[in-house]
Write a protein that binds this DNA or RNA. Sequence first.
DNA 1: ATGAAAGCGCTAACAA
DNA 2: TTGTTAGCGCTTTCAT
Lengths: 348, 348
Amino acid sequence: MREPARRVTARDVAADVGCSVSSVSLVVSGKADGRVRQETQDAIHEAIARLGYRLNTTASALASGTSLGVGFLSPDPTNPFFSMVLDGLGDALADHFALSVLVPTGGADYDRGTVRRALAGDFAGLVLASPSERLLDDFVPTCPTILLDAGGPVNDLASIDVDLGQALSELAAHLTGLGHRRIAYLGFRREKASVQGRRHQLASALQQRGAVLDPTTVEITELTESAAQAAFTDTWPVWRANGVSAIVCGDELFAYGVLRSCRAQGIRVPGELSLVGFDNLPYSSLIDPPLTSVDLSARLLGRTAGEALLDLVSTGRPPASHRVPATLVVRGSTAAPATPQAPQAIAR
Amino acid sequence: MREPARRVTARDVAADVGCSVSSVSLVVSGKADGRVRQETQDAIHEAIARLGYRLNTTASALASGTSLGVGFLSPDPTNPFFSMVLDGLGDALADHFALSVLVPTGGADYDRGTVRRALAGDFAGLVLASPSERLLDDFVPTCPTILLDAGGPVNDLASIDVDLGQALSELAAHLTGLGHRRIAYLGFRREKASVQGRRHQLASALQQRGAVLDPTTVEITELTESAAQAAFTDTWPVWRANGVSAIVCGDELFAYGVLRSCRAQGIRVPGELSLVGFDNLPYSSLIDPPLTSVDLSARLLGRTAGEALLDLVSTGRPPASHRVPATLVVRGSTAAPATPQAPQAIAR
DNA sequence: ATGAAAGCGCTAACAA
DNA sequence: TTGTTAGCGCTTTCAT
């Protein structure tokens, strides 16, 4: 039963050395050169090591008015996309801040409650990944905040987004080149503008090549395989009747869900149905069939967000919103449709 | 160009209401009932809302001597195993602490530097996932710490571990039942005791059923697919010469790496080589072939660690080390060996 | 029921 | 170059 062992403070060190706490503070924070004599510095260092002194970062933060960490919110820390974003973010921030991951409670998307907890955390900055529309509506930032994958700036908050333009036209070219004429989109329902943007970009890229995005819209609110599996199972009869021969999924997890549904129903992929995912996870190339993917550069996205936040925190000037380009990775889940496709009229 | 907007403090609220800061503090911390008159409480609540006051958690932590978060260290936040552990941890801790994920710098395993940063963070507690042997050697905890997947308690630190006993004998029964007689193990080199333990458990389970664990040991230090791919490519000639017909991988990522190597070399899985992974990621059932897996119950592991930590932090008594049972999930990557296997002598 | 006051451990003026 | 001092915003006795 050992003592609570009162923590060694800067004062203890100062007393031991016979100097003042300010000198200790200066030495510890590395601002000592030219302000504290070398001998004193040495003595302080020695005492710190001997006594086992460690800076109390809480007190330090309070006194200096700076905060210690930045918060990261994502709908689901389990989704590989967000893990990779987190990894990139860590890269950019590691030397400057601790990264707090606010895990939404109960497997749901993060909501006001989670954000409130984040705001209570006295962070130096906040990164909101794939925030939902409702959330942003009444979100009042209390610290430098940047959005990630919000589809563009919202309420003066900069957003780091994926630029899908190039990848989407490549995708359209790829699919139409294979002979697909009617493609469906299985999206993630988050912030309106973003979703519409993705759909629209894909739709117009397809149109330019004489193909069509099926107007039957499916937007999933839950970022899980099983939700996608269920949604696809429900909607496939309609899409099939419409002549859809390829599906583009707004999240790779969705593609996995579709795949499961196809297996369960005996739908051949590719052939009867071609499948494209957004993300390009490490597993894309291992699954059966290997998934053709739009690579969202998650890690780069995270790093860019980290850098933007660093900039925002230090300069106080709102950073420009950034776009990092996505790239198309073609694999085995897309092939020519089994039945030749009729040319389509322009949608809507 | 808006003002730095000095933060609303408890004093502002007190001044507004015409009471003292102590009352505000009591109300905010929920200790007001019976100590502050109801009218005053109401007035304070009203002022808080109107003024937009939020508790400064840094100051609160300093004054009360409590800390705000717990730190989580893992070799790689990108590895789905750790994401799931993190998720479980978040579940257990969410209402009590913020979870800080300390991301190791530069993609390497976390080292003393990372730990030092963690220790500097004034956490209420620390969770060290899959710590390396060297790390623990000279690790001096400065706050309640629990280990996760360390293979058992180390230096008085409790560890939450997977109990492989049952799953491993099922696995041995499964493999020998299929006709395998010589199995190799591709492990993750971390803390010695743990690794030896896993190997030994598997070895003895196999022996009891007349099969043998190939003595050629491969222990990978880096938790990546590509490391496993390379290691397997190097060692396969030896294993093949020894008559190995099945491989058990200590991490599912390793199994993916082996799979890639097999594809590259045209080794048929299963048939020429059966493959088993440890983890049972969501992707196990989608890859080709679906992976037979020892499910490590990552999420439960995380949740258990969280609960143990909560207990440790609040009671101060070291929690018991826990073992959560793994389970075998049989899928398509294991089958009878193409060539019948000779009965094997007992290894070493 | 309420408020005054003494810190928590550190930082940053300012004096010396 | 060094030490003294006044806080940072909150919690927590302890009087009142």
